[in-house]
């Protein structure tokens, strides 16, 4: 499963001269211009910057949900832009977890089934799935609500379910786009504590985008974007 990951480098994510332009009517809008970044395995890094500075766009490119107009994005040394739809899906499925601002749970499925979904895609056996799901729910402290539906739980709980879903497959990278934006400070701190623990104990690389000072407190490296350019890159 890990065979196409290049272990010789510590740079799990490498962004080389990336520019992203979106068509806007007749013209184009440059959301990111000439970005160069290296993210090492095990980092706990955040993209900050004003609204519209390109944070989400960059996370989507890293997650191979979108392709850069120019430049390359290497995940463990492999260029994601040249991958086919099926290959980039496989990359996400095996190596990348997503957490969103709005929790994006599938409403018709139970908490258990939501967390189980990535494992179904990996065609894991029922027993394996059950064990991994319960473990992931245990990490976020929600084993007791496994059978509830997303509509029956609070926002803080929903975001923890989303975290469980993103880590259940033990990914290398979790991309979290403003994960605390919809939460009160108690829940925001709770979420950040969980993510920090996952980073330290499982070695998952985290990449955030946020405006939230509570998130920024936790980050070990802060990359500031402005008008689609890296304005500052600071490691604490």
């Amino acid at each position: 499963m890990q065979n196409h990951i290049n272990m010789n480098t510590n740079n799990i994510i490498e962004i080389q001269n990336v520019t992203k332009r979106f068509p806007v009517g007749e013209t184009e809008f440059t959301a990111l211009s000439n970005i160069n970044l290296k993210i090492q395995k095990g980092e706990f890094t955040g993209l900050i910057g004003p609204s519209g500075s390109g944070k989400t766009t960059l996370l989507n490119l890293i997650g191979a949900l979108d392709i850069p107009s120019e430049g390359e994005i290497l995940i463990s040394g492999k260029n994601v832009a040249v991958k086919s739809d099926a290959e980039s899906a496989l990359l996400r499925n095996e190596h990348i977890g997503f957490i969103f601002q709005s929790y994006n749970l599938l409403p018709v499925y139970s908490i258990f089934e939501n967390v189980e979904f990535p494992l179904l895609l990996q065609k894991k056996s029922k027993a394996e799935r059950k064990e991994a799901v319960m473990q992931a729910l245990d990490w976020v402290g929600l084993s007791d609500i496994a059978n509830k539906k997303p509509s029956q739980i609070s926002g803080g709980q929903a975001q923890r379910v989303a975290i469980a879903r993103s880590i259940v497959k033990k990914p290398d990278i979790v991309l979290a786009d403003e994960p605390t934006a919809n939460l009160d400070s108690t829940n925001a701190y709770k979420i950040m504590d969980i993510l920090k623990k996952l980073n330290e104990e499982l070695g998952i690389t985290f990449m955030f985008s946020s405006h939230d000072s509570k998130v920024i407190e936790y980050l070990r490296r802060v990359i500031t974007l402005e008008d689609g350019k890296v304005k500052n890159d600071e490691t604490k």
């Binding site: 739809d85 996400r92 095996e94 969103f100």
Partner: peptide, 16 residues
């Protein structure tokens, strides 16, 4: 489309 977006992010291919 919302649901499809989530499923794509989780790693299902568009084809599937």
């Amino acid at each position: 489309y919302t649901e499809f977006g989530i499923r794509i992010a989780i790693g299902e291919s568009k084809r599937d």
